[in-house]
Simulated assay, not measured.
Amino acid sequence: MTDIVVCGLGPSGRALAHRCLARGLRVAVVDPAPHRRWTATYAIWGDELPGWLDPAVVAARVARPVAWGTVRHELDREYLVLDTGRLQDSLTLDGAEVIAERAVRVSGRSLTTASGRVLRADRVIDARGVGRSPRRAEQTAYGVVVAGSHAADGARAGHPGAAGGAAAASPRHGDDATLFMDWRAGNGAGPGEPRSFLYVVPLGGGATLYEETCLAGRPAIGLGELRRRLEHRLAARGITLAGDETVERVRFPVQGGRPGAHRFGAAGGFLHPATGYSVAASLGAADEFAEGAPARLGRARAAHALRVAGLRALLALPPAELPVFFDAFFSLPSTLQRAYLSGRTDPVGVAAAMRALFTAVPPGLRTRIAAATCGFPFSRRMPTGSSIME
């Protein structure tokens, strides 16, 4: 009998299957396109890199990434951008039974494919991610990969302010070649429109990804609008696109996963609802799940519930207040930032970070944040600035 069946071969499912094989387990994997190449950009914090992962998967390291709300923040945490192709190739599946079919029914000990084949195992793990739904908030992004010389020119040009009254960045800040999150104006959007931020990271080989991102929205900002905003930003930086650049399009739910013994990755609540990150958490938990029933499941559920409450608060913020909110977050001690961003099984740390953040935001936002976090309705007479936030 098969020891474990892993359903879904994205980064989470493939990492779990790979670590199960490393332990000598009999593994079957089910995915309708098991050899499909990944195209998304993945990044993790340096302290999240598991020791078993091949170091060659790291394409670029950023010692102190920069974030902007209304002011500049240097984050005291190394940030790693992964080589997606090397990551996929390093998670070998040698010895696994690979079944190129779609699963239609999954339970804890059996799986049925679209053709009617039934697979039974000691454990069946659902790692298929989360399906889209109008009821679920989504993250969207549109990015382009810019080759070396153009990216360098853009970094030297700085990030001038945009229409809407934002001041130009000072020369001291003009060389921020990496931007973890930049909420400043500069994308041509009006002051009352939903906010998006700029994400800029090196990909290795002199290439740089520039990506305009809607962190979370219900509905989220469309890809066409994000493309327009990104092109506006790049033009302001003096970067001219040739038209043949690699494009990255992102759209996925940030709600819907639930921690459980038979769910892994985004399906198992590993996706952080306030950032959209899940790969680091999945890589870090792969050994734990491979060894058997996950430990600290109750703590994972509690931390997940707190983060879901945090997402409600984020969705309730007026667009104009998002930069102020993130100023408060990135001003927290680094230990609290880590707890909220990476403490998947640390509800005490997550709660401490949320409490400190609530204290740090301006008093005018606290009523709205408190009501949304607790799930209470708040008055529509309170200014929101954006229909997507309610």
Score class of each variant (00 low, 15 high):
I4S: 00
P11R: 05
A15R: 07
H18D: 02
R19Q: 14
A22D: 13
R26H: 11
D31A: 13
D31T: 03
R36W: 02
A40K: 13
E48Y: 00
L53M: 09
A56Y: 01
V57S: 06
R61K: 12
R64D: 08
V66G: 10
A67V: 04
E74H: 12
R77P: 05
Y79D: 02
D83A: 07
L91S: 09
R102C: 06
G108E: 15
R109D: 15
S110E: 14
I125F: 02
D126T: 04
R132L: 15
A137K: 05
A141G: 13
V146C: 04
H150S: 15
A157P: 00
D175C: 00
M181F: 11
A189H: 04
E193D: 14
R195G: 04
V201G: 06
G204Q: 12
T208C: 02
P219G: 05
A220Y: 07
G222E: 12
L223D: 00
R227S: 01
L234P: 12
T240D: 11
V247G: 06
G256T: 09
G256N: 12
H272N: 13
P273S: 03
Y277Q: 09
S278Q: 05
S282M: 08
D287Q: 11
D287W: 06
E288I: 03
P294Y: 07
R301P: 00
R307I: 03
L314E: 10
A316I: 03
P318D: 08
E321A: 15
F326S: 03
F329H: 10
P333S: 03
A339V: 08
T345S: 14
V348E: 15
A353G: 05
M354L: 15
A356S: 13
P363N: 01
L365G: 05
L365H: 04
R366N: 10
R366V: 11
A370C: 07
F378M: 07
S379P: 10
S379K: 10
M382I: 12
T384W: 08
G385W: 10
